[in-house]
């Protein structure tokens, strides 16, 4: 059993006895550790090990990997163009079109495979934008405080009071329903929770002694933010980034459902949006993309929860 795990067990009762033992010998003497010490049990690696122990987290990760794999390799396995009309509209699933056709006679399976690419890319890129804006605003706000904080908090509050879906609709309507616009719009309306989270983490960490010690060691603000505070604030931010992917995927679905999808790029949301009026005639055209969105969001949520359990020390026991 590694040192890390022992430490975790011993921690609640004996914070002082954890880890390497019996080498705090009299000053000046350098005695070797009494027991072999697991080298380099970094917190990140410990968290990964912990993550791999969680059944739901691993299941989510496998699901997510499969979805990504299909999105990458899919066009090779099923090369049909998702926008091409391959048969009659509303053809039920049969050997030619495994999952049937939609209201224009396009192949639903091709739509699923190619649309997955678009939807998951939108999700990942929008989540990335969310995190970049949110972390930058939150970090500056929480680290410097004072008027910088007041200003940035006012700005985030402005974004917070706007209903995000409506706001995104306005942006997409203004700049046109293209995939890039949709992605940016989603990112632009959903960064405030990440900013609040980052700000709170930075404010908590800012006054800890090790930050002051770094400052006493000659560290400037940039070094402190990027190299000292941010790495310590990262675990909850990673969790929120994971969950933001799920939210962005749902967002894309919602916008498309309301008719604001990019008609030139097949995505899961677009498939649902365009076929929603025919759900009674052709259930397959809506159900399969719906199920795909459900699976993708479920997968990222499971992964997010798994990471949360792994990085949250209070839940780490047992």
């Amino acid at each position: 059993m590694s040192t890390v795990e022992q430490t975790l067990i011993v921690a609640p009762t004996e914070p002082s006895d954890a880890g390497i033992t019996a080498n705090a010998a009299a000053p000046g003497t350098t005695s070797a550790p009494a027991q072999p010490v697991a080298k380099a049990a970094s917190p990140a690696r410990a968290a990964l090990r912990q993550f791999l122990r969680s059944p739901s987290g691993v299941a989510g990760a496998i699901m997510l990997l499969l979805l990504i794999l299909v999105a990458i390799l899919g066009p090779i396995l099923w090369p049909t163009d998702p926008l091409e009309i391959v048969g009659l509209p509303f053809a039920p699933p049969d050997p030619d079109a495994l999952l049937g056709t939609d209201y224009l006679g396009r192949d639903v399976l091709a739509g699923l495979i190619h649309g997955g690419r678009a939807t998951m890319t939108v999700g990942a890129v929008a989540a990335f934008i969310t995190i970049i804006i949110g972390v930058s605003v939150g970090a500056l706000s929480g680290f410097f405080g004072g008027w910088i904080d007041s200003l940035l908090v006012k700005i985030s509050e402005f974004f917070q009071v706007l209903p995000p879906l409506l706001f995104a609709m306005v942006l997409v309507t203004l700049f046109g329903p293209k995939l890039t616009t949709i992605t940016i719009a989603i990112g632009a309306v959903s960064w405030t929770p990440a900013a609040r989270l980052t700000r709170a983490e930075f404010m908590r960490l800012r006054d800890l002694d090790f930050i002051k010690a770094s400052r006493a060691a000659g560290a400037g603000n940039w070094h402190l933010i990027m190299r000292v505070v941010l790495p310590n604030a990262l675990p909850p931010i990673i969790v929120s980034a994971t969950l933001a992917i799920g939210v962005a995927i749902l967002f894309e679905g919602g916008l498309s459902f309301l008719g604001l999808g990019d008609p030139n790029t097949m995505s899961w949301g677009l498939m649902i949006g365009q076929n929603r009026n025919y759900v009674l005639d052709a259930w397959w055209a809506v159900t399969f993309p719906g199920a795909a969105i459900f699976l993708a969001v479920l997968a990222v949520s499971l992964v997010g929860d798994g990471i949360n359990d792994a990085v949250n020390p209070r839940l780490r026991r047992r």
Partner: peptide, 21 residues
């Protein structure tokens, strides 16, 4: 006056006198 070392951790306590080291 100094007591070198520290209290042995849980699980590292044998039948020997715990203060021996």
């Amino acid at each position: 006056g100094e007591i070198p070392g520290m209290v042995p951790g849980l699980g590292n306590r044998g039948p020997d006198c715990a203060f021996l080291a």
